[in-house]
Amino acid sequence: MVNLHRGEIEAVLDGKSYRLCLTLGALAELEHAFGEDDMLAVAERFEAGRIAAADAIRMIGAGLRGAGYDIADAAVGAMRVEGGAAGFVDIVARLLAATFTAGRVNGERGAEDNGPLAGRAA
């Protein structure tokens, strides 16, 4: 079972349920892969709503590895998901929301309030 307060989500890939989590190690992997300076820059990259297929593969692969699976990006690229490309985009959006808004309580804004950077201090 996933724990949203730990930034985990569940996704079905190739008909199998997986837990995904962007740990600090996974975020560092993405910073390096995308040439970004910090983890919030990774989130900002996707907040505009545009995502390349290669970016989705990297994000989902990092989330799988962060949850403890030993799955290479090439294997992720060969996986199928219900909804096709839109299904992959949904996984990335849910993963980012869980990572950057997990654990908000007591009236604070949540994932549904403006994307993964909602409530970020300027």
Rank of each mutant, 00 (worst) to 15 (best):
A54N: 06
L4K: 09
D37I: 06
G83P: 02
A54V: 14
L22R: 04
N106Y: 05
V92C: 14
L20V: 14
A86W: 03
E108S: 06
E36H: 03
G66F: 06
D73N: 13
G77E: 09
N3D: 15
L20F: 14
G87C: 10
A56L: 14
R19T: 15
G15M: 02
G87E: 10
L20S: 12
L27K: 04
A121P: 09
N114V: 06
G87R: 07
E44K: 11
L30D: 01
A56F: 05
A54W: 13
D14V: 06
R94K: 14
R104P: 08
L95M: 08
G66M: 10
A54S: 15
A53D: 12
R45G: 06
T99N: 05
M1G: 11
G110N: 02
A67G: 03
G7T: 07
L40H: 10
R80Q: 13
T23C: 00
R104H: 01
F88C: 03
E82W: 08
T101F: 07
A52D: 14
N114G: 15
L27Q: 08
L22W: 09
L13M: 10
D73P: 09
R50E: 15
L20G: 14
L30W: 07
E29G: 05
D113H: 15
M79Y: 05
A72G: 09
L95A: 07
T23P: 00
I9W: 03
I57N: 14
G68H: 08
G61F: 02
Y69R: 04
E108Q: 05
V2T: 12
A33W: 00
G110M: 01
L117W: 03
E10H: 02
E10F: 11
R120G: 07
A53V: 12
M1C: 00
E44W: 04
A85W: 11
A28P: 08
A26F: 08
L4R: 09
G25E: 12
E47K: 04
E82D: 13
F100W: 14
F46Y: 08
V42N: 08
I60R: 10
R50H: 14
G35L: 06
G66Q: 10
M1Y: 03
A62S: 06
L24D: 11
A54E: 15
C21H: 12
A118W: 04
L117A: 12
G25Y: 02
A56K: 11
N114Y: 13
R19G: 03
C21L: 11
E31D: 03
A11D: 00
R65N: 15
A43H: 02
G110I: 02
